[in-house]
């Protein structure tokens, strides 16, 4: 077990060949009796408390599991959208994001991100209130005042730098969750990515709290939205690739990851 990883890879490949090459049974029996695995595992917990709970490990988080497996009736549609968004990312968003990142200095990109975060304060502020989180709402309000004034229209996050106030990521999807609305079917939205019925409704609700929505003409609001998204993507190039590479089943990995992340956010 302590052998270097490269060696242990070779070893495990060897094990695998041996295991699958149909050796006589007595050979296996012998191999097993000398195997530290069957007698005592070096890292197996010997703490009674852990062991005791350990006997339930098979069923630990069973709720998560069933929740995660449950209700994907839109799978055929989602498969198509998954494929669409995947191509959209690799063919369009990633090249744009990289080009943008190449010409825009970090400081400006961060400033633009701060500006849009500041602009979307109403979404977080109202949702804090709807979840009866008064302190968090106050936090958002203070941030808005500080960053809009001292932070020069939000380009500098002075509230974080000097008052140590982090933004509170609340949205209407979470608010509905706090109110007891179940997440509902998993759905992959074109352009927007993973969501659920509840969170899609949440997005729609938040749209009306977004100042950009009220810009006239509508084209202008769309253009500015595109700037926001491009800037955003320029920070996240590579994340999607990592998730995909780390997954044996990218669709399930992303679905489970999204549902876990949202459940956690609702509980906070």
């Amino acid at each position: 077990m302590n052998s270097a990883a490269g060696v242990s890879l070779a070893q495990s490949a060897k094990d695998f060949k041996e295991a699958s090459s149909g050796l006589p049974p007595h050979f296996h029996a012998k191999a097993e009796s000398t195997n530290h695995y069957s007698s005592e595992h070096s890292m197996e917990s010997d703490n009674p408390e852990f062991q005791e709970e350990d006997s339930d490990y098979l069923y630990e988080d069973e709720e998560d599991e069933t929740q995660s497996y449950a209700s994907d009736p839109l799978k055929p549609f989602n498969d198509v959208m998954f494929h669409f968004n995947d191509k959209l990312y690799f063919w369009v968003l990633k090249p744009i994001g990289r080009g943008y990142r190449a010409i825009m200095p970090d400081a400006i990109r961060i400033g633009i991100q701060n500006f849009f975060v500041n602009l979307s304060t109403p979404i977080r502020f109202v949702n804090c209130l709807l979840q009866a989180k008064g302190d968090d709402a106050g936090n958002e309000f203070t941030r808005l005042v500080t960053n809009t004034t001292v932070g020069f229209l939000g380009f500098w996050d002075q509230a974080k730098a000097h008052q140590h106030l982090d933004k509170k990521e609340e949205d209407f999807g979470q608010t509905l969750g706090v109110w007891g609305v179940e997440s509902g079917w998993y759905i992959i939205l074109p352009f927007l990515g993973p969501s659920t019925l509840r969170d899609s409704a949440g997005r729609l609700g938040d749209m009306f709290l977004d100042p950009l929505y009220y810009l006239e003409p509508a084209e202008l609001s769309l253009e500015i939205w595109a700037v926001d998204k491009t800037n955003d993507i320029s920070f996240r190039i590579g994340d999607y690739e990592t998730i995909k590479e780390a997954a044996l089943d990218p669709y399930e990995s992303i679905r489970d990851g999204y549902l876990q992340m949202r459940a956690k956010k609702v509980s906070q």
């Binding site: 988080d61 998560d64 599991e65 995660s68 497996y69 997954a247 044996l248 089943d249 399930e252 990995s253 679905r255 489970d256 990851g257 876990q260 992340m261 459940a263 956690k264 956010k265």
Partner: peptide, 17 residues
Amino acid sequence: IEGVSLVTNYRTQFGKI
């Protein structure tokens, strides 16, 4: 990582496979 348990995430995938 950011509220997502690695073990649970792989359990979902392994379960499917």
